[in-house]
Amino acid sequence: MEIKERRLIPIYIFGKRYEVPEGLTIQKAMEYSGYQFIRSCGCRGGVCGACLTEYRTPKDYRIKMVLACQSLVEPEMQITQSPFIPMRRAQYELEKLKAQPDILGRIYPEIYRCLQCNTCSRVCPMEIPVMEYIACAIRGEIEKVATLSFPCVMCGACVLKCPAEISQPNVALLARRIYGRHILPLSHRLSQRIEEIKQGKYEWVLGRLVQLSTSELMELYTRREQEPQESGHWIPKEINFPENLLREDQ
């Protein structure tokens, strides 16, 4: 069905009534009503957390928190938005931190105030078990905080609701950074490649490639060997391609 022919439903934006076609996201419904966003709009795809929106419908006593770009309008909903939520962010130098169990609690001691009310998990639009990752933070399980909180878009819904006044997304961010930097191993192969580049292993071949004519490049391009989808034990026939060919030509 064409959207234009769709049923119009009433919504209330900051208390004012508008009629919008059903099936629109809250974000588009607000635009349809004449809003041109400055705040409360970013990626329009559910990853930036700019569009945190609260609403209530007549049939439900609860206030729901959603991302406006990811949720549909409902008849009679009352909408408000929270474009900016003050959060506490501690100062630290990641490089100097150590992955000790109490590190999160030392930097964000307010986590110990958690009342285990679970409000944060209930409101999280990404359905993250927020209370659980805070509990893990208290227990010093950095890896679990990092993986549980991974989809966090830092919208701040949990921050707004937390009776213990914890800035959960910043605790989680710190945990992920410590995990990424100090717990996950740095890749040996990667360091090796960087070393090779520093020692000039590819200087010659790149120096030649930048000088090649289009037709020469096309020929090499066409001769590339394609690594297959299932490349478990795959080894290319010419390991040193295109350097081998270019050296022969010299």
Partner: peptide
């Protein structure tokens, strides 16, 4: 292409959680 590996390592050192294989490598 020359800077690429260096950049990847820089990001990893900033704490970006890149996906790993079972053996822990990228």
């Amino acid at each position: 292409v020359e800077d690429a590996p260096l950049i990847l390592e820089w990001l990893a050192r900033l704490g970006v959680m890149f996906d790993r294989k079972e053996d822990g490598d990228l």
